[in-house]
Design a protein around this nucleic acid. Structure first.
Length: 573
RNA sequence: CGGGGUGUAGCGCAGUCUGGUUAGCGCACUUGAUUUGGGAUCAAGGGGUCGUGAGUUCGAAUCCCACCACCCCGACCA
């Protein structure tokens, strides 16, 4: 490709609303153009990157015996009503009506459609297992799209669905796809980690996320410093301490805290550690009675964990101020377990506390030296309902937990019969008996991978792409291409030779000053660069530059093709 | 949905408080000249319903009202 005949639209300044480095660089490099909030066009350079990622994804999926199909983006409401997700999926589902006022949606995921294909076609155990996948545009009407293609509403996803006669078969395919995902992200040159995860709106049992590790990630991952335990903080647990409650020696005491509503403020006022305070939260219970949830002042409640407790209303709902005031006769900043008559859910760590500090259920007052059993009822339920923190013992007993951030680029689920049951997905077994199929699903955020890769690989000059996803593998930057016949001739020769070796090369023949040509090549993140100009050609030499290590050396013109192609092929592996 | 903010040329911004000639600057773009191994210089030029609508006024980018879009924080969601 010659730059003069290509579409390169780099800019020096990123738009004001771009926050994240990957977003800024993708805009500056001209990979994407925003059309509306969370909706982007892919320009030629950006699309080339997408296609390269898709190629690797296809190769690995095909290797894992998955078959590519392409399903409609628009789906009829009936299917979603059948799986009961028409209501459950919420506002993220973009609903549309056709001219006959029939309901449709723009597919955010394709469990229903794939299942419908399989149930109409696959009747026998002999045809199973089978895995289908597609690479397609999805739409999820995110509450707050942000960070460019990182959290876009319209995005490209590889989604795969597998169908099985039993759980063992599902696990086998699950592991195969898990391995394929590891291969994909390794080949793409990403630093990533597979972590145990919650299943969210997709549902099912076992689930792992593939997280690209970077400080700008939206997810928090907990991992053991000395074992391979790793989980999303939504799910991460810790090894419960064997501690018991110490005997109280002090009497409960009411103290005035007129303006202190948070644990932090109260602890500061009475000069006690934050870990001596108890945070009281109120959620609606199944019978609409408020349920009191207790958590240590220095801990954070985990809504995924608490959402799994049966005594709470689904979906989890914070009680309103008026409900709280009606039951506790005080405002939310001063509630506590003393004299509370309903269900109390206490975190493990709260249940072993004594002489703690909590709200007095009287506006402007807190109690100190409160004890379960003596001053307030014992908790009805004791459970792990908090987020793990750094230093918690790893749940497998090996080492302590550390936290880091990540970007979710892949997610694998064992759906089991979550969809098979409501949608009646069955096959005939050896005995001619009808049985429910087991199902798995597997997603990769293809467009998000580009943003994640850039977050991980950039410097002050711009992007540093791994060879396998770079828009071009090599750029020839020609100095005075249009003015010097020598430069033009040698550049063209070099370009043809490299192209014949199947190297994805861009010849930058644009009539610009050298500074802007070099700056562009670095911004775009092209891994290797050959600079060709009259000065070094006088010695039959060119300059060879490696973007990743930001170093260059002079190489004889006769050797450059071999050296460059060997290096590129080495990196591509 | 709650809180905060921003809309002026493709991008980044000034001008708005205190209404008053032809709405300005940098980058980008066009033409010419001089330059040419790190985003050049000079000269000339093109490009604007000042987010939209309604109002106040002799006069509105500027003041008032409504609406829209976008961004940030939170809630929410994967």
């Amino acid at each position: 490709m010659k730059a003069s005949q290509f579409y390169i639209s780099t800019v020096k300044e990123a738009p004001r609303d771009a926050e994240l480095i990957s977003h800024k660089l993708m805009i500056r490099a001209g990979f994407i153009k925003r059309l509306a909030s969370g909706i982007y066009s892919w320009m030629p350079l950006g699309l080339k990157i997408l296609r390269k990622i898709e190629k690797i994804v296809r190769e690995e999926m095909n290797n894992a015996n998955a078959l590519e199909i392409l399903m409609p983006a628009i789906q009829p409401a009936e299917l979603w009503q059948e799986s009961e997700r028409w209501e459950f999926y919420g506002k993220e589902l973009l609903r549309i009506k056709d001219r006959h006022q029939r309901d449709f949606c723009f597919g955010p995921t394709h469990e229903e459609v794939t299942l419908d294909i399989i149930r109409k076609d696959i009747k026998s155990y002999k045809q199973l297992p089978i895995t289908l996948y597609q690479i397609q545009t999805k739409f999820r009407d995110e509450v707050r799209p942000r960070f460019g293609v990182m959290r876009a509403r319209e995005f490209i996803m590889k989604d795969a669905y597998s169908f099985h006669t039993n759980h063992e078969s599902l696990i086998e395919t699950y592991n195969k796809i898990y391995q394929a995902y590891s291969n994909i992200f390794t080949r793409l040159g990403l630093k990533f980690r597979a972590v145990a995860a919650d299943t969210g709106a997709i549902g099912g049992t076992g689930s792992h996320e593939f997280q690209v590790l970077t400080d700008s990630g939206e997810d928090i991952i907990a991992y053991s410093d000395s074992s391979n335990y790793a989980a999303n903080i939504e799910l991460a647990t810790y090894l419960k301490k064997n501690a018991t409650r110490t005997q109280s020696t002090k009497e409960k005491e009411k103290i005035a805290t007129p303006n202190q509503k948070t644990c932090f403020e109260v602890a500061k006022m009475v000069n006690a550690p934050l870990s001596n305070t108890v945070k009281s939260l109120v959620y609606d219970g199944v019978n609409n009675q408020p349920v009191l949830v207790l958590i240590r002042g220095d801990h954070e409640l985990n809504e995924i964990k608490i959402g799994k407790i049966a005594q709470l209303k689904q979906p989890l709902t914070f009680s309103t101020h008026s409900t709280i005031e009606q039951y506790f006769k005080c405002s939310p900043g001063f509630i506590g377990p003393v004299d509370f008559k309903g269900i109390i859910i206490a975190d493990n760590d709260v249940s072993i506390m004594s002489d703690f500090i909590c709200g007095a259920n009287i506006d402007g007052f807190h109690y100190i030296n409160v004890n379960f059993g003596r001053d307030c009822p014992e908790p009805t339920i004791i459970a792990d309902i908090r987020n793990v923190i750094e230093g918690d013992p790893s749940p497998d007993g090996n080492g302590t937990l550390k936290l880091c951030r990540g970007i979710e680029v892949g997610h694998v689920f064992q759906l089991r019969t979550k969809y098979s049951t409501p949608m009646n997905l069955t096959y005939l077994d050896q005995n001619g008996k009808s049985q429910l199929m087991e199902m798995g699903c597997y997603g990769i955020g293809v467009s998000r991978i580009i943003a994640a890769a850039i977050e991980q690989n950039n410097d002050e000059k711009g992007i540093i792409f791994p060879v396998n996803m770079a828009p071009f593998e090599l750029i020839i930057t020609s100095i005075n291409y249009s003015k010097s016949t020598l430069v033009k001739t040698k550049s063209d020769e070099l370009y043809i030779k490299l192209k014949n070796l199947n190297i994805d090369v861009l010849l930058d023949d644009r009539d610009e000053r050298i500074g802007s040509l070099l700056a562009d090549s670095e911004l775009l993140g092209i891994p290797f660069r050959i600079v060709i100009g009259e000065k070094f050609l006088a010695n039959n030499q060119v300059e060879f530059y490696n973007r990743k290590i930001s170093a260059s050396k002079l190489i004889n013109l006769n050797d450059i093709v071999n050296i460059a192609s060997e290096l590129i092929n080495l990196e591509k592996k």
